Amino acid sequence: MNLAWRDVQHGLGRFILTCVGLSLLLGVVMGMVGIYRGLVAEALGLVRSAGADAWVVEAGKRGPFAESSRLPRDTRDAIAVHAGVAAAGAVVYQTVEFPYRGTNLRVFIVGAQIGRPGSEVAIEEGRPILKSRTEVVADRKTGLALGERIRIGRDDFTVVGLTANATSSGGDPVLMMTLRDAQIVQWQFDPSAVRRETARDAPAGGSSDLVSAIIVRMRPDASSDGVIGSIARWKHLTAMTAAQQEEILTRSVIERARRQLGLFAVILLVVSTVVIGLIVYTMTMDKKKAIATLKLIGAPDRVIVSLILQQALAMGLVGFAIGATLIRLAKDYFPRRVVLETSDTAILLGIIVMVCLIASIFGVRSALKIDPASALGG
């Protein structure tokens, strides 16, 4: 006969309510870890989807995602003929807001040259951009529908394709368009004083011919360090590898958010330990007379210790299972992306088992101090 199971059956309602309450706490812990993974996935998504071997930006800048960068578009032509470079593409990145259905829609605009590095995108519905003007591909989180027309600045655009999980490091959904369109939008959303200055030398289209970065893909036989070092010697440019760009994003752009989420996760785990410990202690005290009776009839201490440990582990595992189920069902409703990896879940499960074992110490110590003679009292 399993004493722990018998005791759970005796107070099944209370046990279930306790597990549900604990599951909400553990679900929040898993949510914190998932939100952090989502931040990393969002920050690195655009970098990795570009497939760049190197990024070229304005001198002294750390990349188009960490800070603003402006380069003349013809810089791409100079880099494209550089030794060791297989292909190069100019891109524009900018966050804008525009009126949409009675409110403002905030998006991260990606402008790229058709057929060049940076223009590739995984289309889930519709088609990629084929025309050089007024066509866009939108992430599903924008809420835009295929074939819908939207107005950005002074121009109308048609949504010809939809993609998924394309967001900026700030969580804004991506809106892809041609480089020329993005340059016009960028110029229109610049402050009026800036537009007046840049319009003096602007071409007939009304937009200065500037880009945010140059995406470089190298030849298989080229030396990455050699090409980047050669480009970096141009005083008006900064060149970095894709790995360096990713490190800037993870260690600089989202570093504070990572630390804050990690701190909250640790605090919640400590709180979980205390809560489980208090619950186990309360359950042990409720069984004080039953434990004294077990001692009186000669039950060894290991039976009592096993009873408490099994209940603590059962409570933690059931709470963990319910919490994991709830967070997986709710993750798509979060405003930011939540990524739940199997490895993180396994690690957290191991931590919860350790938490239950540590928390059960309070109950075990109290149980072993119970006097068998108290079973004969009133």
Rank of each mutant, 00 (worst) to 15 (best):
Q9D: 00
L12E: 01
L17E: 01
L22Y: 00
L25Q: 03
G34N: 07
Y36D: 12
G38A: 09
L44G: 07
V47D: 10
R48T: 12
E58G: 06
G60R: 05
K61A: 12
K61Q: 11
R62P: 06
G63T: 14
R76T: 15
A78G: 09
V81E: 11
H82Y: 13
H82T: 15
A83W: 06
A87E: 10
A88R: 06
V91K: 01
V92E: 10
V96T: 05
F98Y: 07
V107L: 04
Q113S: 06
G115A: 02
S119H: 10
A122Y: 06
E124M: 07
K131G: 06
S132V: 13
V137L: 04
A138Y: 04
R154E: 15
D156L: 05
T163F: 12
A164S: 12
G171W: 04
V185D: 09
D190G: 02
V194K: 15
E197R: 09
S207T: 07
A213M: 08
P220R: 00
A222I: 04
A222W: 08
G229P: 01
A239Q: 03
Q244C: 03
Q245K: 01
V253Q: 11
V253R: 12
R259Y: 09
T273A: 15
T282N: 04
M283G: 11
T284R: 01
K287W: 02
K288Y: 03
K288M: 05
A290L: 07
A292H: 01
A299W: 08
P300R: 06
V303K: 11
G323F: 08
L326R: 12
P335Y: 02
E341H: 11
E341D: 13
T342S: 14
V355Q: 01
S360G: 05
I361P: 03
K369R: 14
G378V: 11
